[in-house]
Design a protein around this nucleic acid. Structure first.
Lengths: 313, 313
DNA sequence: CGCATCCATGAGTCGCCCTCATAGCTTCGC
DNA sequence: GCGAAGCTATGAGGGCGACTCATGGATGCG
């Protein structure tokens, strides 16, 4: 037996240092002193016999070993939370505890509220928190992979590929539409407004095939800003349905026809969290989105995967 | 933040109490005093606000909440071990540390040895241990679910269903055959020898449809005992191929024809361990069982991984 | 060079957890 | 009924680990 014990407080210290990028900042987050963090990290490194952080003027950056330790540490901490929550609640059916959701902006605004309402109605002891994450770079899936969230609402096909160690499923497919100021005679002649997260490769291909689409002349910060620009008459945009829910009356939405591009929205989570009662309850509610409710979303349940009873590793 | 911290030492105390069945015995195992165990358990119960053990003359038995805590605790402790092992070893390719395998008797005897030989040849620092678990009740899957093993070799379809929080895959399907004393003129007239773990529902159905099969007159402890009885001329038996490997020369095996029953053998592990280097290395070796080894050189590696990139939950 | 901002280190303090000793409870055997 | 033999519960005291405080060293910046 090597008998190396890492206390939860030590794991939290590792995670804080990695996320804050320095001992001092980590100390602030942990509500302790820089000295305590330094002592703790040094102690852990001595116990493990491995240097976990490169120190320097810049602060502290994880070494490869440190990155592994931090990633595992986050998962262990999360499992400890699950232990506490599921030990306290009388049965697995009784779902309780925190549930951290990462979502991109439009999903957080238009997709999640009704889902979370039903979820908390069914499980009052559940405390879901939603973090808005830019769907660029690692995106929401990255937040889940790094243990910052328990479940992510992600767009598939757009942005970076999903890390292989995550599991998930597609929830719905939504079309892109043309949005422009209401009553404009020739909206396609307007300048194009684009935004950062709007970068599906499939969409881009379709985009390039349309000769009427100009290169973007305006680039906004997020889809909400795009919509506000369009409603002010500054131009037109091509946006997914989710970003267009609740679009102001001064805008007009035009279908792009049968060849319109679409994007897939789904959820991702880690295998070990997929089994927890809280995540499963949320996934159950999210699946309801696949059944076409009378409202807007053009859900396409056709492509639902046939699931084997046992999932391969 | 409720922020209830359970130190590894506390988790080990819970596990020890549950497994030893009492505070005093747990104290001996932990190399500490009964008083320390009592204080620790009481402290944990106060932190969680839940009674974890029923105390009495008999010692201590886990309450339902206690059983959940112990089961989660074992898994957290295991993940902490993995954290230490994988942080220390230079790369994920460098696999090291203990690997606990639960298997039913015939798999441990006839299936695992060559697999483990190849595994340890490839990863000398890996220390696999095999525990033989009766495939009755929770079986090997139960051992994995409760954190007593990292990976289980299980029969699917037979015994209890696999707990939903586990993951795994089928490795091979093997037929049942008739085994009887060599040279017997009418083996089907012999009395039937059965054993405890032999209880697949599918097999039973097939069984009932065969008019020549009598009800079992002898019931042995395990498949090895059955085989020994058969070889002594005490009767005939219907056994899966794995139990018949290395059957003595005094026995004779007769194929049961195209409608013969079969059983599926596979592996089971927890989602959080499925991602660890050690378990993945073992699974890779186990997968070799699916294809005859001499074909492996020509096998298309892509064909073995035709699984969807995202696994549904 | 003075300054700001990092981390490192040593001494002192506090709190937690363990040990020791003992008390309470239940179940046997007689 | 009574004591012995199992358990666990509890209180007092001590040791060790973790934190704080104060200070020092390294490094980049104007």
């Amino acid at each position: 037996m090597s008998t190396v014990d890492l206390a939860p407080q030590e794991l939290r210290t590792l995670v804080a240092v990695a996320e804050e990028g320095g001992f001092s900042a980590a100390a602030v987050r942990l509500g302790t002193t820089q000295s305590a963090v330094s002592h703790a990290v040094r102690g852990i490194e001595r116990k493990l016999g491995v240097v976990l952080f490169e120190r320097g003027r810049f602060g502290a950056r994880p070494t490869p070993a440190g990155a592994r330790a931090v990633s595992h540490g986050r998962r262990v901490l999360r499992m400890l939370d699950v232990l506490v929550a599921e030990t306290r609640s009388g049965s697995p059916a009784e779902v309780a505890g925190p549930l951290r959701i990462a979502a991109f902006r439009s999903a957080a605004l238009h997709l999640l509220p009704p889902v979370l309402e039903r979820l908390t109605a069914r499980h009052p002891a559940l405390e879901p928190t939603v973090t808005v994450v830019r769907e660029v770079g690692p995106g929401t899936a990255g937040a889940v992979a790094e243990g910052r969230a328990d479940l992510g609402i992600a767009t598939f096909g757009t942005s970076a590929p999903i890390p292989p160690e995550l599991v998930g499923d597609v929830l719905l497919e939504e079309p892109y539409s043309l949005v422009h100021p209401a009553g404009h005679p020739d909206p396609r002649s307007l300048p194009l407004v684009d935004w950062l997260e709007n970068c599906s490769s499939y969409t881009r291909t379709w985009w390039a095939a349309q000769d009427w689409i100009p290169t973007a002349t305006v680039r906004a910060e997020d889809d909400g800003a795009v919509l506000s620009m369009v409603s002010s008459g500054l131009g037109m945009a091509i946006m997914p349905a989710l970003s267009l829910t609740g679009a102001p009356l001064s805008t007009q939405i035009t279908d792009l026809g049968p060849d319109r591009p679409t994007r897939q929205i789904g959820y991702v989570t880690t295998p070990e969290l997929a089994g927890t009662a809280a995540v499963r309850a949320l996934v159950r509610e999210l699946r309801e989105l696949r059944e076409p409710r009378e409202l807007r979303a053009h859900a396409n349940p056709a492509a639902t995967t046939t699931k084997p009873q046992l999932r391969a590793v």
